[in-house]
């Protein structure tokens, strides 16, 4: 029995790897039609931007409160701005954005594609001699890579705004100290750029998993539901695991 499980697991990994490869092959040709990608960026962005903005604001508020009480014990509240910005840019921004994205945009991608499979729209496209990998999968994949860093940027910006509100407006920290500690602590390359790279990788992983699950959904109402659930579960796991791997390499 365990051998059977291992084989099934390997087969599942292999299928996903193959799908990833096929998507990468189709991607350059999809690039020739940027309108399709822009449409998808708009779609995933418009469904998640408010969620991610509000989420970021609250995370910033909470972070500032927690850090402020901890830092005040050492009389180090002056480094609040830098600490919050580092936490957001390096870790919380990319990871929490990706988790929210998987819950919102990922599920709608998975159910959209599952529905296309169930109503035979994908078959119809194949019969019309249009490659669904190029027409449906690749534009969504590229849109994920583009939009996740943008959304993570919004998340972090809103988080910093939240920290500013708590630190400066509520706790009475000097705004100059708040901003200058941020400028002092945060480096463009090792913090900001690495955060962007992380979220681009998460964007690729999230959309690929969601699209894969939808594309291979069993063609029934049940199948679409299962594909949607699976896409969130697998994406969340993948994000956290990838985060560990990327962090280990980056810092």
């Amino acid at each position: 029995m365990p051998i059977r499980l291992i084989l099934d697991f390997l087969a599942a990994v292999g299928q996903r790897a193959w799908f990833f490869g096929a998507t990468c092959v189709a991607a350059p040709r999809a690039l020739r039609r940027p309108a399709l990608i822009v449409e998808q960026v708009f779609f995933v962005g418009s469904v998640s931007v408010i969620l991610i903005g509000v989420g970021g604001l609250f995370v910033g508020l909470v972070l500032a409160l927690q850090f402020y009480t901890a830092l005040s014990r050492f009389g180090a509240t002056s480094s609040l701005g830098g600490l919050v910005a580092l936490a957001l840019l390096r870790e919380l921004g990319p990871v929490l954005t990706a988790l929210l994205f998987a819950g919102r945009a990922g599920t709608s991608l998975a159910s959209e594609l599952g529905l296309m499979r169930a109503t035979r729209q994908i078959d119809a496209m194949e019969v019309m001699a249009v490659d669904p990998m190029r027409r449906i999968v690749a534009p969504r994949f590229l849109a994920g890579i583009v939009s996740m860093p943008l959304l993570a940027g919004i998340f972090s910006a809103m988080g910093i705004l939240g920290a500013y509100l708590v630190g400066v407006k509520m706790m009475g920290l000097d705004p100059g100290v708040f901003w200058s500690s941020m400028q002092h602590e945060v480096s463009f390359h090792s913090d900001f750029v690495n955060g962007l790279i992380k979220s681009a990788v998460f964007g690729a992983a999230c959309t690929l998993i969601a699209v894969y699950e939808g594309f291979h959904a069993r063609p029934s109402a049940e199948g679409v539901g299962q594909a949607t659930t699976r896409s969130v579960v697998i994406s969340s796991m993948a994000i956290l695991a990838l985060d560990f791997i990327l962090t280990a390499f980056m810092y």
């Binding site: 959209e112 529905l115 296309m116 109503t119 035979r120 729209q121 078959d123 119809a124 194949e126 019969v127 019309m128 001699a129 249009v130 027409r135």
Partner: peptide, 29 residues
């Protein structure tokens, strides 16, 4: 397959496109 047309039992229209765009789809592709 460009020489073939297949009418699916379900119709299989693209649900995110209007009737016009559905019919235009093969032409645009």
């Amino acid at each position: 397959r460009r020489e073939m047309g297949l009418l699916f039992q379900e119709g299989a229209l693209f649900s995110d496109l209007s009737v016009f765009e559905n019919v235009a789809f093969p032409l645009r592709e």
